[in-house]
Structure formats: C-alpha cells, structure tokens
C-alpha cells in the first residue's frame, strides 16, 4: 500500500484493521487509552448483511457466495470531523468505537490513537496470523525420492 499513489491508503488500512479486529481487543485498548472524545452519533449502529462474491474458477465472472453480518455506525466529533465504522459481526459498540477512532485519526489526536490502539491491535492480528502460518508450515510435505537399486 503506497500513500503516494493512493491518497486514501492510510484510512483504508485503519478502517480495514478496525473491521477485522476482535471487538474485545479494540474495547480494551480504547479503554486503556483514556481519551475523552465528545461526539454525537450521526448514524446509530445498524446490523445488516453484505453479499460476499466469488469468481467462477477463481478468475472468471462474479457470483454470489453468501452473506456476512456487518454492523455500521457514523459519528461526528465536536470539531465537525466525521468518522465511519463498518465492522464484521453484530457488535454495535464495536461499530461505534471504529467510527470514533476513524474520526480521531483525522485529527491532532491521530498519533496518540495510532500508538495506543491501532499499532497494538495490528501487532496482535499479525501475531495470530503468523502463529497460524507457522503451524501450517509444519504440515508442509517434504517429498523425497527413493533411489532405485540397479545393481
């Protein structure tokens, strides 16, 4: 992801992280940050479905695979900054917190929020992924060829 080529890359990255992170981890980190961020709710949390699509033969035309549950919410900070949260699952608080963090990341508080919430959240997610990848790697087959005795 290159910020130079895509002006939205940074925001896209944090929104994606907030969507996929476990609600509990996010809630803990947010509480620990102890940041006062008065805001009003623009769009109350709403639970809905998103139709997930695949491609025929992995590369062909799109088809509908099935839905996932998603919760969304939007908030506005006192200075007018708007934040949107779209998160996987049905946790309304998760969506509100994501929206709030999205808004704060567009303000002077960005560095604090990044260090206190996003960076550790990303670290936990990366850790989980690499643990799984390491277990998968341990099940990789090492083929060896038997040498045929020709004498």
């Amino acid at each position: 992801m290159n910020v130079m080529t895509d002006p939205n890359a940074a925001r896209k990255a944090w929104l994606g992280l907030l969507a996929k992170a476990p609600a509990r981890d996010l809630a803990q980190l947010w509480a620990a940050l102890d940041l006062k961020a008065p805001h009003q709710i623009l769009r109350a949390p709403e639970i809905g479905g998103v139709m997930v699509r695949g491609r025929a033969g992995a590369i062909g035309e799109a088809f509908n695979l099935g839905e996932i549950t998603v919760t969304r919410a939007s908030i506005k900070l006192e200075d007018g900054t708007v934040g949107h949260g779209y998160v996987q699952g049905r946790d309304k608080n998760h969506a509100l917190q994501a929206a709030l963090i999205d808004a704060l990341m567009q303000t002077d508080a960005a560095a604090r929020v990044r260090d206190g919430v996003l960076t550790p959240l990303q670290a936990t997610m990366t850790q989980k992924k690499s643990t799984r990848a390491a277990k998968a790697a341990a099940t990789k087959v090492d083929f060896f060829t038997m040498v045929r005795g020709e004498d």
């Binding site: 639970i47 479905g49 998103v50 139709m51 699509r53 491609r55 992995a58 839905e67 969304r72």
Partner: peptide
C-alpha cells in the same frame, strides 16, 4: 437483515 451491499469478489489467490 438489511442488505448493505455486495462485496468485491474475494481474492482467493491472496488466501492465507
């Protein structure tokens, strides 16, 4: 569930 929309096709090439 209200339908929020449809996703972009998932990229199974990038699967972990």
């Amino acid at each position: 569930l209200p339908r929020f929309g449809g996703s972009n096709p998932i990229e199974t090439e990038d699967m972990q």
